[in-house]
Amino acid sequence: MMSDTPEIVKKVFAIFVVGIFIVGFFVTFTQMPKGNEVNVNDTVSRFYVMKDVDQATQMLDKGTYFNKDMVPLRNDVPYTPITFGKSSNLEDGAANVVTSIVVDYRGFDTLGEVTVLFLAASGVMLVLHGEKRKVPKKKTEPSEIMYVGTRIAFAVIFLFGIYVFIHGHLTPGGGFPGGAIIASGILGLFLGRKGYSPNKAGLTVFESLSGMAYVIIGIIGLVAEKSFLANFLPTGTIGDLFSAGFIALIYIAIGMKVGSELSAVTNAMIVDTEED
């Protein structure tokens, strides 16, 4: 039994381990090639901003990354710079490059991520299913101001969440933050009303339908473009709301799914305020 070891020895040992970790990290870091010699140009990823992977791959060999003597990209490859609001029919029309990677280039990865979140939410609901917890009664009931205020705030928060995931291809944000915002609005409803409970069956149906919509969009891509989760809609002009093809559709599905999932998790975790 190790419990007779003095507390101070354990803390010193922990500090020692943490120190070894940090020192080792920085030593490894200084052993790496110097900043100018690190060949980050071999990565295609930063060329996703060009919205054309084939062309970017051709431009790779002389591209530089923030060096003092920056060598421009290859000139012999024809490349038209992308102008906001003018360039159209690009490979991927999203103005937000991160979104275009998350949903378009690595859409299958995101499908797996949604699956992981679904499994985690199912696990929470499975573990906490049928809880009858004896909890002390709340010291203070939510006041009238709290009750009305959370309801008004919920409408605004809900609209803002929808705004965030509909504009996921134009502004920072997207389906996951939008869904989290909606779930936080529902958490506000829990705070404002005693005994509030969302419609659990409705949440489950909503979540299943939106998850199914994601897969159906992927299968439509498989049928139309011969690749799972391929963009089958016109990409339009960069910067427009109706651009970037299916990205907005998928982010609406993800936002609804994440919103209902996190609301269900909140509902499972919140302590029941039943009368005792």
């Binding site: 901003v49 992308i82 490059v97």
Partner: peptide, 29 residues
């Protein structure tokens, strides 16, 4: 930031000046 806006150009004179968007998307995951 790797987002095209009206005033934010990611490729200037043939230099890519945006931050690498791939790690950001991985962190989002």
């Amino acid at each position: 930031m790797p987002i095209y806006t009206a005033t934010n150009n990611l490729v200037v004179n043939g230099h890519v000046i945006a931050a690498d968007p791939l790690p950001q998307s991985l962190v989002l995951t």
